[in-house]
Computed example of a mutant assay.
Amino acid sequence: MEGDMTDAERITRAFATAIEKLRFLDAFSLLDDDGKYHVIGTTPASGVYHGPQDVFDRLVPVLGGFKEPPAVKFEEPIIQGDRAVLLGSGTGLGPTGPYNQPYYAFVLKFADGKLMEMIEFMDTQMLVSAVFGEAEPA
């Protein structure tokens, strides 16, 4: 069956499997060197990362303090043409508190068989409280 998969299907499934197995470097290595990874919001981790090396250089150190990395589980991916959506949830223990994300969404975009863009949607306040120690606004 894997031989019948499109590049989008193969890469989407490889990304999901790597994240679920806590192999974050493998997952983000799937992003093309010219690709972009967007983390939504205004947190210290939010922004646009350009290629996997930028993710490793700038994002990994910011999120590297997890006491228990988030255990993420994804639903069956939604893949159509050059787009894919991964819906999931995850829990872990950040450096400053519990990390419970009941809803994640990764929107992936492909071009010429390569992963060119990822946008991650999540509860950014949960990220702020669990990783950066900031309380929820009143």
Rank of each mutant, 00 (worst) to 15 (best):
M1H: 13
E2W: 03
E2A: 10
E2L: 07
D4T: 14
M5E: 09
M5I: 03
M5Q: 10
D7R: 03
A8V: 06
A8T: 05
E9R: 01
R10W: 01
R10F: 01
T12L: 09
T12V: 05
R13L: 13
R13E: 04
F15P: 06
A16I: 07
A18W: 08
I19L: 15
I19S: 06
E20F: 07
K21C: 04
L22Y: 05
L22I: 09
L22W: 06
F24Q: 09
F24N: 10
L25Y: 13
L25H: 10
D26Q: 09
A27F: 06
A27Y: 06
F28G: 01
S29G: 14
L30F: 07
D32E: 05
D32H: 14
D33G: 14
D33H: 06
D33F: 02
D34S: 13
G35N: 08
G35W: 05
H38Y: 12
H38M: 09
V39N: 15
I40E: 08
I40Y: 00
I40K: 04
G41E: 08
T43N: 03
T43S: 15
A45C: 10
A45D: 03
S46N: 04
G47Q: 08
V48F: 09
H50Y: 13
H50S: 15
G51F: 12
G51T: 12
G51E: 05
P52K: 14
Q53D: 12
Q53V: 12
D54A: 01
D54Q: 04
V55Y: 14
V55W: 07
V55P: 02
R58I: 06
R58T: 01
V60Q: 09
L63S: 09
L63G: 02
L63A: 11
G64A: 14
G65Y: 08
G65A: 10
P69I: 13
P70H: 04
P70E: 01
A71G: 10
V72W: 02
V72Q: 05
K73G: 07
F74N: 10
E75W: 06
E75S: 15
E75G: 13
E75K: 15
P77G: 09
I78F: 12
I78R: 07
I79R: 10
I79A: 09
Q80L: 11
A84W: 01
V85R: 12
L86M: 11
L87D: 05
G88F: 11
G88C: 11
S89T: 08
S89L: 02
G92S: 09
G92P: 13
L93C: 02
L93I: 13
G94D: 01
G94I: 03
T96N: 12
P98F: 02
Y99R: 04
N100F: 11
N100M: 07
N100P: 04
P102H: 11
A105I: 02
F106N: 08
L108E: 01
K109D: 05
F110D: 03
F110W: 08
F110Q: 02
A111K: 13
G113Y: 05
G113S: 08
G113V: 11
M116K: 15
M118E: 12
I119P: 00
F121P: 00
M122S: 05
T124L: 05
Q125F: 07
M126N: 05
M126F: 00
L127R: 00
L127K: 00
S129Y: 02
A130E: 06
F132P: 00
F132H: 01
G133W: 03
A135K: 14
E136R: 13
